[in-house]
Nucleic acid binder design. Structure first.
Lengths: 377, 377
DNA sequence: CAATTTAATGCAAACGATTGCATAACTAAA
DNA sequence: TTTAGTTATGCAATCGTTTGCATTAAATTG
């Protein structure tokens, strides 16, 4: 399937080395050897006023303390000199960095990028800048990175990578930094969480399968340490029992990670268990993709032989056959709402914040579900 | 295709509102009303030394100025008190923020996330933190965001969103901040660029098509303002003429953006132009996906009727039929190398840096290319 | 043992902004 | 004309570090 023109590869690699070694060497001459940045003082001297006056002139909140002419003159000179405020110095003095930390498990996962965008849609207009860090779902890395954020004095943190049970929030609380979790939640109700309606999503899927005649369901569960894995599994158990389906324990396979390989492994586990089932409800899309792949490789067709459902509705999913029937979540809105709550917390310590905000989900019907075969294989 | 259980949607939306309005209200009580952070001074008083001594004890570079016992005692007390350095104050004094700015056109585009990861693989171990901003390929936003980065005193910038011809680097130069462009380059040789071998990629594709009998090629070109669009178009022209193919002007369609919609639009343009062609070389994968979709909708099959190629090898592409034949680039390595060059520039002003570093590419063969029909339709 | 070097620490001045308070000039009221 | 009240600006402290220099005590040398 994958084909590499290796000689050409080598050739171009040599070219690469060549470009590194002999490439046009430029010193990237600094325009100013010694950083030549303009400070308030420079502007003040030029204008002939005190730097405090310049500061006041440049800050919208204080400029009306000054006479309009002075403000105008200062602003003029400042822009002419190319003055830029030093946000560091300002932050040190004001004790606000106008920075929020965003903690992700993995920036390359298409699920999380829109959360960032959603958050920034709120934060940027307010003058906040975000610092994004990747935990790789490793709690040691997580601790380290949260330390980094705290040292840099972030005004708040949006955490899209928390584990359910966690002692990792102590340092954040000590610093008194507002915190919101996004997409996932923790077992602490004192930490506001913005999540999707995992329960409702699973309910929709199970009902959808049930209506089409499926009675024997299996589940590939996500990591128990993540609320998404945990809640969806619980919902699966609850909803199936609610409509009177019997789910034996070995109809549930537990993935260690939310990825394709684990999806494949779990699907195979279900197959070899000898269990009889007509559909697999997967805790997310990537598990589902892996499962479908494993089924195919075992000579089982989806949806003809077994139906499969996902969760999240990743981009491009509609282009991948058979077209995964899944739950669409509102990643952007999760980010947006998280940021809204966070800004309220940052600006008003007394603000009343919902401990959990649940965003609605919708079912997306594609080709990975059909009626079950009358006699299962 | 897309099916929404709307009543259930409404129901869950109501639930959402409910959770917002009536959700368990928690004040997210701050543990410390007034931020209660420990400073050097606090530690110094506790230990009974000067704060400068504490500073020296805590900094690896200066701790050997002190007697080992004092260092040990200070470190002990500091950790016991939960001291965390204030990176802001430190940066203000040292004139280094240990922060680099990463400028992306769009964080949600899967092409760019790995660049960030690659860069961080170098930067993080060195103690740098990155600030990621999205320009949306809008040069006004770009200017604004670069201003933000400069105000925050980044030590260097990796720019993965430059346009070819640009006057936008003046402010960066004025501040004397090192800059590297990644994945794209500019027309200034004084700005080091790390790019993929666009030319070689197009050469590989054209050769590949030519060997399989294609003689009538069309091209969907990317935006001329981006080096990737520009270089690939040039390479297309050059390579086709090199092997003696005649390419009429209307065999080239110009996309305004690198997205699916523009791919579709351009493909339709090519179709209605009445031109005779057997394959479309697209400037990137997203254009190719759009093109294939448009062909299908026009009743033309890929690859049976027309072959299509892409560029970049986005993730999951292998799962999308017919399987796009494309060029694999090394996004992670682009990020990594950019960061390596940047750190050299940040630490050693005199370092010799290649003005352009070109990373090798490889052809990935999938199903979107076949032999041309003997009589084109 | 006096003289000189070395080692360990403290003092105080930065870094570049913001901001409470003091002061000067000016206006308005008495 | 004096007094009180504004208005516009300057002065100086502060945020939490780092770091050049001064100082003291200890160690080394002749």
């Amino acid at each position: 399937m994958k084909f590499i023109l290796s000689s050409i590869f080598l050739q171009s690699f040599a070219k690469f080395l060549y470009s590194i070694i002999l490439g046009v060497i430029t010193g990237w001459k600094m325009v100013n050897k010694k950083r030549n940045v303009i400070t308030l003082k420079d502007v003040a001297i030029k204008v002939g006023v005190d730097k405090s006056t310049v500061s006041r002139a440049l800050n919208p909140g204080t400029q009306d303390l000054l006479s309009p002419e002075v403000v105008a003159r200062i602003r003029d000179v400042a822009t002419r000199m190319g003055y830029r405020k030093n946000q560091l110095a300002r932050s040190l003095r004001t004790q606000r960095t106008m920075t929020v930390g965003i903690v992700l498990p993995d920036i390359t996962n298409t699920l999380f990028a829109p959360i960032v965008r959603g958050a920034e849609s709120i934060l940027e207009p307010l003058g906040y800048t975000s610092m994004i860090v990747n935990t790789d779902d490793d709690s040691e890395r997580r601790n380290y990175l949260i330390g980094v954020l705290l040292e840099r004095g972030v005004d708040g943190i949006i955490d899209a990578a928390p584990q359910i049970s966690t002692t990792q929030f102590k340092s954040i609380e000590e610093h008194g930094v507002p915190l919101v979790t996004a997409i996932r939640k923790t077992d602490r109700t004192s930490i506001p969480a913005v999540i999707n309606d995992d329960e409702e999503g699973i309910r929709l899927l199970i009902r959808y399968l049930h209506v089409r005649g499926h009675r024997k369901l299996a589940h590939i569960a996500g990591p128990e340490t993540l609320s998404t894995g945990h809640l969806r599994l619980n919902a699966f158990r609850q909803q199936t029992s609610l409509i009177g389906l019997d789910i034996p324990e070995n109809a549930i396979a537990y993935a260690m990670r939310f990825d394709e390989d684990e999806g494949s492994r779990c699907a195979l586990d279900l197959l070899v268990s000898g269990l009889d089932f007509t559909a697999i409800v997967c805790a997310n899309d990537r598990l589902a993709l892996g499962a479908i792949k494993a089924l195919h490789q075992s000579g089982i067709q989806c949806p003809e032989d077994i139906s499969v459902t996902g969760f999240n509705d990743l981009p491009f999913l509609n282009l991948i056959p058979p077209g995964l029937t899944t739950i669409r979540i509102q990643q952007f809105d999760v980010g947006r709402l998280s940021a809204e709550l966070l800004t309220r917390m940052m600006t008003n310590q007394e603000a009343a914040i919902p401990s959990t905000s649940i965003l609605p989900v919708e079912l997306v019907e594609r080709g990975s579900v059909s009626k079950p075969r009358t006699n299962s294989f």
